[in-house]
């Protein structure tokens, strides 16, 4: 998205979220080493990092787009694709793995016909795996829309995800 020459700080789309992103960058004084913090904020505001947004950040922090793209693709946390309306994260840490997290994942994959890392065609559910949530005491754990659920079984995780898709919580 081209940035107008007259006022480089205001995004032409007039989207308010850009203003909030701008505030974050200002707080870090547009320092290039704040790139990861800015990307965190951008992802929080927009849900994912699309190309235009990355270019906008590159322009504001005076960084080559390659550097911004490089950082955004290096870290697992940043997503360049739109996520589903709901997400289910299956923890694949060692403790969860030993307690059968792989089964949970297979069950979910079969139930919703998507693979880990994919979003269902209707855009409702994203299935993600995590390295370790640090919730090993309640393994195996999944996170459904930000809520950690411990001691899961194939049945409980299926019904929990269904509940989330049907009722939105």
């Amino acid at each position: 998205m081209p940035i107008t020459k007259k006022n480089p700080k205001v995004h032409p789309s007039g989207d308010k979220r850009f203003r909030m992103l701008e505030a974050t960058m200002k707080r870090y004084q547009y320092a290039s080493d704040a790139l990861i913090e800015v990307l965190h904020q951008a992802q929080e505001l927009f849900g994912y990092l699309e190309e235009d947004l990355l270019l906008y950040i590159a322009h504001s922090l005076k960084l080559p787009p390659s550097r911004v793209y490089g950082v955004a693709t290096f870290y697992h946390f940043f997503s360049l694709k739109q996520k589903g309306a709901h997400t289910c994260v299956v923890c694949m840490g060692t403790a969860c793995y030993v307690k059968g997290a792989a089964n949970l994942l297979t069950t979910l994959e079969q139930q919703h016909h998507i693979k880990a890392g994919e979003t269902s065609p209707d855009g409702q559910l994203s299935l993600v795996t995590a390295r370790c949530l640090g919730a090993c005491g309640i393994a195996p754990a999944v996170v459904v829309d930000g809520n950690v659920e411990g001691h899961q079984t194939s049945e409980s995780v299926i019904s929990r995800v269904k509940e989330c898709l049907d009722h939105g919580y």
Partner: peptide, 24 residues
């Protein structure tokens, strides 16, 4: 400084690269 999900950033030189806003 908030990490962004890269295991290698636990390695000290990678961690410092990440604090500098670069690829870890």
């Amino acid at each position: 400084r908030i990490g962004a999900g890269a295991f290698v950033c636990g390695e000290e030189t990678a961690l410092m690269a990440s604090i500098e806003g670069k690829r870890g």
